[in-house]
């Protein structure tokens, strides 16, 4: 077990540093902060709302993340397969799941860095008024969990191709479905013909529903289980797919 954990941390270290070895990290951070800022201040009218909270910021997170996390996750496996380094990884004396987990955690930590860079907004809110900091903390927790779920899905999909662009687009489509599953727009379209249980199942997949509850400050077991199991399930499928697709 110690050996497994140590190989997770070795993979994590390499992958985390790899983000910063290319301009990708800087571009990502700039784009994320610029978009988050623009949405919060201009589209949602942060100041005009006259309310000391971060709802104007969190509302946009699912929509930003469904584009940005596929960008973080796309290289994780597609690049290994394209360059052939997957042959090195898979002939090392470590369990494949440790590599899957190390890579995922590196991408997740990178997302954490991006989120940490938005904390000046939190400070600003506190300077302007007296917000409920518990709700904001819950909002950050929810955002981070959602990022983890999207990233796990994107990493999983990137095992299926050697092409990062295809990996990006496919992951964006899948995360889009996850986000919109609970919207009346989608449910209404299914309800007409699908059995009740299917409609309910689709609604239960809704990231948006869980995310909205947690950003209101409601940290509930179903939400934690929802995001947690989405991550675990995606990583398990990821491990299985790596083994299946590595040699093709």
């Amino acid at each position: 077990m110690t050996a497994s954990l140590s190989s997770v941390s070795v993979v994590f270290g390499r992958e985390f540093r790899a983000y910063f070895a290319t301009p990708l990290a800087a571009i990502f951070l700039v784009v994320f902060l610029a978009l988050a800022g623009a949405m919060t201040f201009f589209v949602s009218g942060f100041f005009a709302r006259g309310s000391a909270d971060m709802a104007a910021f969190f509302t946009w997170m699912p929509w930003l993340f469904l584009v940005l996390l596929p960008a973080i996750g796309m290289r994780l496996w597609a690049e290994e397969r394209r360059s052939g380094t997957i042959e090195l990884l898979m002939t090392m004396p470590v369990a494949p799941w440790t590599i899957v987990l190390g890579k995922f955690l590196a991408g997740w930590a990178f997302t954490g860095v991006a989120l940490a860079l938005t904390t000046p907004l939190w400070i600003t809110v506190n300077w302007l008024g007296s917000p409920d900091n518990g709700v904001i903390a819950a909002g950050y927790l929810g955002t981070f969990l959602m990022a983890g779920a999207f990233l796990a899905v994107a990493a999983c999909i990137s095992t299926l191709t050697k092409n990062q662009v295809i990996a990006f687009i496919s992951a964006a489509i899948v995360t889009f479905i996850l986000v919109t599953a609970g919207l009346e727009l989608v449910l209404g379209a299914i309800r007409g013909w699908a059995p009740y249980w299917l409609t309910e199942a689709v609604a239960a997949l809704s990231v948006l529903e869980h995310f909205q509850r947690i950003t209101q400050g409601l940290i509930e077991a179903p939400t934690l289980i929802f995001f947690g199991s989405l991550i675990v399930l995606a990583l398990m499928i990821n491990t299985f797919l790596v083994d299946l697709k590595k040699a093709q």
Partner: peptide, 12 residues
């Protein structure tokens, strides 16, 4: 093991 083409992480 040296795989065909000696793959490595180019940026490292």
């Amino acid at each position: 093991y040296l795989p065909e083409g000696a793959p490595a992480y180019g940026e490292m």
